[in-house]
Design a protein around this nucleic acid. Structure first.
Lengths: 276, 276
DNA sequence: GACGTTTTCTGATCCAGATCAAGAGGCCGT
DNA sequence: ACGGCCTCTTGATCTGGATCAGAAAACGTC
């Protein structure tokens, strides 16, 4: 048992850090993140942690107050990947064991019915946690598919909730993660015109990229138009046309999958407009 | 302090019972519920508990293994209501303090945007818990409105999560509640024809009524057509027409708000059909 | 039980977005 | 470079459901 000395404590910290990180920077403050290059010197002088392996930890700057051995982090939290675009991280029907936190890349969750029709339920950017909907049924109700080369942290849910049992902060953070997922679904269930939905989609991506320290103005769409269309309940042709219209109106600049939001404010105004 | 002796233990049990109950009967078994009349003799001979005050506890039969004073239940879980149709249980923007479990009646959650447009996000039947989406933002993002005379349990979230901290079963149950809410939203985000959505809605209600021991075939719609329409992203006229069509086809019998599912199997088949 | 209000139903028309149908790039492997 | 395979774009047409309009129930109230 000697080898496991302190493992619990370290694991707690690790899990908390990861969750905190996923929680990003819209919750309670107390973060001294530096949005610099990929290799980030830890604030405290305890050591220099290269972040090449975990975008999650880097994004929040939580690593600072502990710099506890990262080797131990990987006892609870296992690195997986990279997955290539199109590969499955998990499949619908598989027994649920793990949550996944995206470290780099993008994944989508997709539900497929008996007739083979697919519905894209969400896109998950770095720093975001996937799999929460599987806790209750005990099996993944969706497929998790990488859209591009993607690395993740695998979080065994039993272990995480066990840590949450002892650490109130972790428990609370989990509750918030769950709660936020519900809120996001609800905010997406608004009816509205196709333009509103697409504008909201772009603004949502923008905000989420901003959260992890990337540019809210310029970003890359990891998914094909057809996935965007499916997700927004539109035809791919409609997405194409609307993007063209946005471009003509000077709202955005889109070449292929490179997006440049030129007038986010006007996009936001578009959301308020009635379908007229 | 003498007066509070044992309060924590009792509260734990109370919270767990409630949550367990909300979880209803699709999770792990171990339930000896009796779907009988309103006043239910407790299985154990420890005492007879009349259930007139809490449909939630009754529905699950959990009360049996404890029969700990119900006076103590109401220290943690406060009865509120009855609210009349149209009354607000909570309003968007209010600071979040409590979850609510519906004991009897029905409530809807509604989001309203700056222009005054409203979106019905869900209906909540007895035994279901409302307010989970408010945990993360710390304020209710939606209005909670009674659709008919409604009684609820008010669960102070701080107290509940504090209990969950000590009791793994409660924590797990909360996770599952959250998770299920996400899953429900996801299963609703399917695109499809108007008939499919309406059929799915009726079948969903049916299943949920069945869960709490009521007839899956015959039930009462607590909400006006306009709310159903809004919830399903349809016009009220369309709902009316589709219900008429369902009636002509012999799938249902609907007089006013009294629903009679005549051929649930054929309704289910309708879901599978492509929009053709 | 007549009256005003709200909800529900039915019919006629209209339109946003789907679908059908070609092209036009891009990207990869050979 | 070449060809094959996607993905994306653009145009023409079609249609499911919205919208407009009004009648008929249901409901509560005095």
């Amino acid at each position: 048992m000697a080898g496991m000395r302190g493992a619990a404590t370290v694991s707690r910290r690790a899990a908390e850090a990861l969750l905190e990180c996923a929680h990003a920077r819209n919750g309670p403050p107390a973060m001294s993140a530096k949005s610099s290059a990929c290799v980030l010197p830890v604030p405290g002088a305890a050591g220099v942690v290269t972040c090449e392996r975990c975008a999650l930890v880097r994004a929040c700057g939580v690593a600072g107050n502990g710099s506890v051995a990262f080797a131990d982090v990987h006892q609870l939290v296992e690195d997986v990947g990279p997955f290539r675009g199109g590969q499955y991280i998990f499949r619908a029907g598989e027994p649920f064991r793990n949550l996944y936190a995206v470290k780099s890349g993008t994944i989508k969750t997709v539900q497929t019915d008996a007739e083979g029709r697919a519905q894209v339920l969400g896109f998950h950017l770095p720093g975001e946690v996937v799999g929460l909907e599987a806790v209750d049924p005990g099996v993944y109700p969706v497929d998790g598919v990488a859209l591009e080369s993607t690395r993740l942290c695998r979080l065994p849910f039993d272990a995480v909730s066990h840590v949450a049992q002892r650490e109130a902060a972790v428990q609370q953070q989990l509750f918030r993660l769950f709660s936020r997922a519900i809120g996001q679904h609800e905010s997406r269930s608004w009816d509205s015109g196709a333009d509103q939905r697409l504008a909201a989609f772009l603004l949502d991506l923008s905000a989420r990229y901003a959260q992890r320290g990337l540019s809210p103005q310029v970003f890359h769409l990891a998914m094909p138009r057809s996935d965007i269309a499916n997700f927004l309940h539109l035809a791919p042709e409609t997405v194409s046309r609307l993007l063209a219209r946005f471009r003509e109106r000077g709202l955005v600049d889109i070449i292929g999958r490179e997006v440049h939001l030129l007038a986010p404010a006007r996009l936001r105004m578009l959301l308020a407009e009635a379908a007229a």
